[in-house]
């Protein structure tokens, strides 16, 4: 499998580590609130397992050390894009 790193070009997936669903947003844990515990629990543990397109985190540890958001279809493993994780790629 090959991942088109925006910095390094298309690279072998062996250079990357996988983290998982990138659509999950970390709650702002610095703001106390009644819902924080539940929101953190969702953030840490709850993941969908969709059959189809998924945005997911990959880390280019053997390359530029960038965290990327990669668009992958879980049914075909087809990768249609990759962007820096902090460039607003997750919507």
């Amino acid at each position: 499998m090959r991942i088109p790193c925006p910095f390094c070009g298309p690279r072998d997936a062996a250079e990357f580590s996988y983290l998982g669903d990138a659509s999950v947003r970390r709650p702002d844990s610095s703001v106390p609130g009644d819902g924080l515990d539940a929101a953190m629990q969702v953030y840490v543990y709850i993941r969908d397992n969709p059959a189809g397109p998924l945005k997911e985190y990959w880390y280019h540890g053997a390359g530029c050390h960038s965290w990327l958001v990669v668009d992958r279809d879980t049914r075909t493993h087809e990768i249609t894009g990759a962007a820096e994780a902090h460039s607003g790629a997750v919507s």
């Binding site: 985190y57 050390h65 960038s66 965290w67 994780a85 902090h86």
Partner: peptide
């Protein structure tokens, strides 16, 4: 390596 990866996640993503 794990800590490095963690720090980079926290910085780049969070």
């Amino acid at each position: 390596a794990k800590v490095m990866q963690h720090l980079e996640f926290c910085h780049q993503v969070l």
